[in-house]
Design a protein around this nucleic acid. Structure first.
Lengths: 223, 223
DNA sequence: ACCTATCCGGAGCGTTTCGCTCCGGATAGT
DNA sequence: ACTATCCGGAGCGAAACGCTCCGGATAGGT
């Protein structure tokens, strides 16, 4: 029985393939990812991309919406976890694996839709709560701020080398890349946990760094 | 007294500005950084770039040479440090601040000269030694491998958000970015130190991941 | 088996950006 | 003051870009 939207099944399959490919190509090429590359990665002609999306920019905006909502969902999950540290660790690991991190290069080049902005705001609040809870439970080290955590997540989610390995054909390399990333996350999580070996240097980062992530509209990366 | 190569002083100044600008622009735009952007960032015309370098590719190859030699120098410094952990921490922090990390995007798109490859091999050996020493001193956690460390360094050196903040005009943002990065490095270093809170998951990464960094010639990122 | 509304790939359009050359003018060094 | 050296950036052909368009293929109902 056909979908109520009555799109043909092959069209729906292509839509999904395009979204997946777009994320992969952006993770590899950054904000300059071309529609041709995305279509090719999806195994589809550019025509199919433009039948679904009016422009490359609209597609990118949609990706940011989806990613921010996923990011929010992950944060809510972490907050709902009964154990404060487990909740934090779950959020951290999931956010590194799939957050706006891989779409990070889009920040500053693509306009944030109101919907995406709302999701980002919601998730930011949830993250603050997760962090506050883990800290007052004595699990998260006291001198770490939400800004530190957000920056670490952004840092850990972009990883060109692992991305390169994962996107090559060979299965052993892809497995190695996945394992490697899990190990790195575990190391960083240990560094975030009490007891801290050494106090963090310098003043706590200004809170505005966090929201600044999506607000740097005046910056244009390319040229 | 003029240099023995008898280049005019303004020319030498421009040469230095170009090298610095090239690193900055590559850190921002990746391997697709354009000669126009590099020249503009150096406050110089493209003509001055091409008077010094026969092609963009040769300039990039030279950057990789210099970076790998600097990387090697840092590793040797760390190895020469009397305290095993301090030596490791010094190496790690320095490598994050200036390593091939920021030039990482060039890997796979620019050919490694024999000289650069030799420096990379030397530094890899030194890194192995630094790690082995810190581990047998009981400071570095036992389940961390050289591959983990190298990946972490690569990960921490590329940070688009901090890079964006640092390259904007405002001094307060640049300071905030520098502080933020130091804090992140301190967190990760704590995660690398004994006693480890939780064991690392999965098998130890294959050693060939390390050398694979510069060997993925079959991979071409763009398109 | 057949029909047709729907969807497809990719050649090709005009535009932009690229690496690079070239030359009239400026300047450092003597 | 003289000149060998170096400069900026307009402009070149080539390549890559976002996007359109259309003849052919196909899913899905009859």
């Amino acid at each position: 029985m056909p979908d109520r939207r009555s799109r043909r099944s092959d069209a729906q399959r292509n839509d999904r393939a395009l979204l997946r490919a777009a994320r992969a190509v952006i993770a590899r090429d950054g904000a300059r990812a071309s529609v041709a590359a995305i279509a090719a990665d999806a195994g589809v002609g550019v025509g199919s991309l433009y039948r679904r999306w009016p422009s490359k920019e609209k597609l990118f905006e949609h990706l940011l919406e989806v990613a921010n909502e996923e990011w929010d969902r992950i944060a809510q999950e972490g907050l709902a976890h009964e154990d404060p540290w487990e909740g934090f660790a779950h959020y951290f690991a999931a956010a590194v694996g799939f957050g706006p991190g891989t779409l990070g290069p889009l920040a500053g080049t693509v306009e944030l839709t109101p919907r995406a902005a709302a999701a980002a705001r919601r998730s930011d609040e949830a993250v603050e709560a997760i962090i506050a809870r883990a800290r007052s439970a004595g699990e998260l080290r006291a001198d770490v701020t939400a800004v530190d955590v957000s920056l670490l997540i952004e840092q850990m989610s972009r990883s060109p080398l692992i991305e390169q390995l994962a996107q090559q054909g060979r299965d052993d390399l892809r497995d190695a890349a996945a394992h490697a990333r899990r190990r790195l996350v575990a190391i960083v999580l240990d560094g975030l946990r009490e007891p801290a070996a050494t106090p963090l240097p310098g003043p706590r980062p200004a809170e505005r760094l966090l929201t600044a992530r999506w607000e740097m509209v005046e910056y244009r990366p390319a040229r």
